[in-house]
Design a binder for these strands. Structure first.
Lengths: 333, 333
DNA sequence: TTGTATGCGTTATCAT
DNA sequence: ATGATAACGCATACAA
């Protein structure tokens, strides 16, 4: 008379089936040395019973949970979406699961999520946050993306300085004589400042004239850029022939404004953005841009988070960026 | 002499601190009735010790894990990204966590993820998959998005038929006389067929002439549409004045082709897509489009998944779509 | 209603 | 090397 087991098989079931002790089964599961002969028996029993380790029991007993939390402002933004995607791939490759938390830019929620994740015994947290006051609980592995939170928390980012410099260099190569840098607030993060600094440096190197225009955080209207541009029109001609925008999103907005004002991009004025956002389905770039190596960033973040804690953690890792020609600069082919 | 506790506080610590029994603490945590006075004492102790329930112990003992798995082909696509975002919000609102699995369109991986999730005792799975052979383990709550997998698995989708019909109606309202429907394969899913059927129906209702062009699955080159369009040019004029594309991605590609061929959108020919994809940062729509109510879909999926299992589960829920004017149809204001 | 004791599935410790 | 057993932290049945 077969007994109907309603519950999933456990290590004990496997041990009984294989004719060994539970300890042996546990060892096989965790890849610890066991005599070949026993290992085979256990493997067979596992397959026969379709056994799967209960991750909750495992998480309760052991310290590893094979789960990492990803904290991000939003999934509904091309850059974040791509980052989530590559983090997921990088984690899955290593048999880790991903717990996702979208804070929707709510700093209170962000803090709650970090606390929750820390108390949920995740093996680590990868976070991209605008919150400078974020408290990271002790003994919690944390990797920050794109933002330097604290000296002791590794940050992975694009080489923003090099990116800014590259933008200046490209505009120069493309024949620009006088350029401008446009930025929207986010003065919280030093990283975008590096884009500006790199750009300035690049302009100086090539003897390129430049101006800066920064929209403050508290304002949220690209109208200020329109006014700025208007103020630089002389005899129906713009005083610039090139603009570097701190993000692709801004670059696209600026292009709209330029079109409104009757200027042609890239004929009258060339625009370079930053991020490497593509149109639908990984089609072309929305604008000429400095491309962030998102998949490399994801790989590096995961690698650094999961590596043996005896390794020293670098405070800041800058990954190389590249220029990609889009519809907002002249063809160079 | 204070003893240094290195481990996190447990229910026992809370009980001791509050001067009650562990059972009482457990009840307070799970919102079960406890005398007001005791509840306060427990709450205070929890706050004082900064206690957080260990979700692994909880998941081991109880059947609920407050975790649901989301299975999606990719996070790196505007529609999926937005869906992930709204699912995350909907789940967080109910204090559920989200385990994300991106399959990268790999059917073998998809199956692995479903099995893994099922064995990880998640409370349910929300999946968007192109795999018709996906095996859903018994006793696993599963909600499918956009694809009808099996009669017993609830599917949440946009009202694709109504969407197709709406597209036809709009083109008619916009003055089109002869229109076309363009689709790319994915014959696997019946849902896009509904868009086609709805469109045909709409054309019939308004006496609008139409043609169909479908790119088969095995081909992956929009060149076939270009050839089709070329074949319909007479005296430098296109035989159509309106096109309905099965997705926004296709619509954008078609617009590029039309531009290549020297036609102006929307002056010469108007194009409507499907999905409601916006440009960066929730700016304008990439094309005139039938908008899928993504946040409603997410809400409904979560609601249905988490609701008491005594409720009957509807096999198919169709949510209303809307038309949004974008840059590829004439202004109607 | 409150308190106590037991077990969930796993891992680790200890004798064998 | 292998096998028995004690925790991990929580929920719950049962006794008071």
């Amino acid at each position: 008379m077969p007994t109907h087991k309603k519950t999933a098989p456990t290590v004990r079931d496997v041990a009984r089936e294989a004719g060994v002790a539970v300890g042996t089964v546990s060892k096989v599961i965790n890849g610890k040395p066991v005599r070949e002969e026993y290992e085979q028996k256990v493997m067979n029993a596992i397959k026969k019973l379709n056994y799967h380790v209960n991750s909750y029991a495992q998480g309760l007993k052991a310290s590893r949970t094979y789960t990492i939390a990803v904290l991000i402002p939003s999934a509904n933004h091309p850059f974040f979406a791509k980052l989530i995607h590559h983090l997921n791939i990088a984690l899955a490759k290593r048999n880790y699961r991903m717990l996702l938390y979208c804070s929707d830019y709510d700093q209170k929620l962000e803090q709650e999520f970090v606390d929750m994740a820390a108390h949920n015994k995740v093996d680590g947290i990868i976070g991209l946050t605008y919150n400078p006051d974020l408290v990271i609980p002790e003994h919690t592995s944390f990797i920050s993306i794109d933002r330097i939170l604290r000296p002791d928390i590794p940050c992975i980012s694009s080489d923003n300085f090099a990116g800014g410099q590259l933008a200046a260099e490209k505009l120069w190569e493309l024949g620009c004589k006088k350029v401008a840098f446009f930025r929207v607030g986010s003065s919280l993060t030093g990283e975008t400042n590096k884009r500006k600094a790199g750009f300035e440096n690049g302009c100086l190197i090539h003897g390129l004239q430049y101006e800066m225009k920064i929209m403050e955080d508290d304002i949220n209207d690209t109208g200020v850029f329109k006014e700025f541009l208007k103020a630089h029109i002389k005899n129906h001609k713009l005083d610039f022939d090139g603009i570097f925008c701190v993000t692709d999103a801004l670059a696209v907005s600026i292009c709209d404004i330029l079109k409104d004002l009757g200027f042609k991009v890239p004929e009258d004025i060339q625009v370079i953005g930053f991020d490497g956002i593509r149109r639908l389905n990984d089609a072309g770039y929305v604008c000429s841009t400095i491309v962030q190596p998102i998949s490399d960033i994801a790989e590096m973040a995961v690698e650094l988070l999961l590596q043996d804690s005896s390794h020293i953690k670098p405070p800041l890792v800058c990954l190389p960026v590249t220029f990609a020609e889009g519809p907002t600069t002249k063809k160079t082919s």
